[in-house]
Design a protein around this nucleic acid. Structure first.
Lengths: 213, 213
DNA sequence: GCAAAGGTGTGAAATTTTCCACAATTCATT
DNA sequence: AATGAATTGTGGAAAATTTCACACCTTTGC
């Protein structure tokens, strides 16, 4: 219980998606074998990942889809609403604010911020844009938990500092740079340029890909 | 040499960015200590990561910024042009096709695809949109290496199959689903919804974050 | 030209993560 | 009620990754 691999958390998200898909298909029962196949990991791995958090199956019978799904949502903290804000209303910030399925994914977009005077006060995708100076007050008033950092690379650290000062708990960092925050704030990088460069590496080094049977 | 950790490749991308930033600042020399601090890893880790690929520093003196930068670009395969295509011209695909800095990042957007008859033949952000049936021919003619998969979740596997059949070498998968491809094709997930769910988990489990001093 | 300080490269230890075998339990069938 | 097939949960082995100590090389200052 003391320490859980980061990779386990990523896989739990994958298992949850698979369970949601199974539930939508009306499938009531599943097994570590089936989850493993769809997630492209081993069945051992599925069972070990789940074992960090408890016992959710029935020996000999497998797992009940709605039950395991509910448990995974609880483990991941998705059985409660999360309020999010976008920091940086450039192309990417606008595209995200347009994203249609937020509510269905347990997250609620509550505010947008930018420090460009031309957009402050405007409405984008139905959301009013605040100036960065309003951050502390709006975060407090609207109970914002998580910030999407979609500012240019050069502005990322300063914006992150402002988010931390405003009392935000987690940051989804879309900027292609490592940002520095206190330990109690969790940062998840979302970095397609880095992914693109990793693809480049693995294309020119095809031998370095591990097998999967 | 036989096997290199995936995490090492991700860190190499980070080191390269730091070196580019140092070079832009006119800084000529650096050290594993400095790279480690900016990348938020240990100096041991930096040196070990580099050691997988050779010796790039001078004992007692550190690293020369332009030299190490050039070597990392070579290692990552960024000293050559890569041709990319976007598959799925919805909101996300359009936002990416608008992305202004592609050329500067060693990648060249060569084509856009969609299977919606309403957009096929149109021009988006200066790029003509092809139908999916044109994929094999266009990939071949334009020498496309990498596909950005920006279709809805339900369409992702079929689109990935089409990319593989067309002979693509790598896929940047923006769809929130694990796709299944042959071993010789490398897939990198770029999944902000998964990142968001990991943030949720770490916010409700603050004790599970490892320290860094 | 010598000594001291600074900093890389690397084998080995420590830690983390994954893999595996198997005991334990459940369900279906007769 | 008993047997056999199925499938979970888990302790420990194996593998992968990170951490570390230190030998070794360079530069700087005197």
């Amino acid at each position: 219980m003391s320490t859980i691999p980061t990779a386990t958390i990523s896989r739990l998200v994958t298992y949850l998606r698979i369970l949601t898909s199974l539930e939508n298909q009306g499938i009531k029962n599943t097994s570590s074998e089936q989850l493993a196949e769809e997630a492209q990991v081993s069945a051992f791995q599925v069972r070990k990942d789940l074992a960090y958090f408890g016992r959710f199956g029935t020996r000999g019978a497998g797992y009940t889809v709605p039950t395991l799904r509910r448990e995974l949502r609880r483990i991941l903290g998705l059985n409660r609403p999360w309020n999010v804000a976008i920091i940086g209303m450039g192309r990417l910030g606008q595209a995200i604010s347009d994203y249609p399925h937020f509510e269905q994914y347990d997250f609620s977009l509550k505010a947008c911020f930018d420090n460009n005077a031309k957009v402050i006060g405007q409405t984008m995708s139905g959301h009013q844009v605040y100036g960065m100076d309003a951050l502390p007050q709006v975060v407090k008033e609207k109970g914002i938990d998580i910030g999407f950092l979609t500012v240019p690379q050069a502005a990322a650290q300063a914006a992150a500092d402002a988010l931390v000062a405003a009392g935000i708990k987690g940051i989804l960092n879309f900027a292609p740079v490592v940002i520095n925050v206190p330990r109690e704030v969790h940062v998840e990088p979302v970095d397609f340029l880095a992914g693109l460069k990793r693809v480049s590496f693995y294309i020119i080094n095809p031998g370095l890909k591990e097998e999967l049977a």
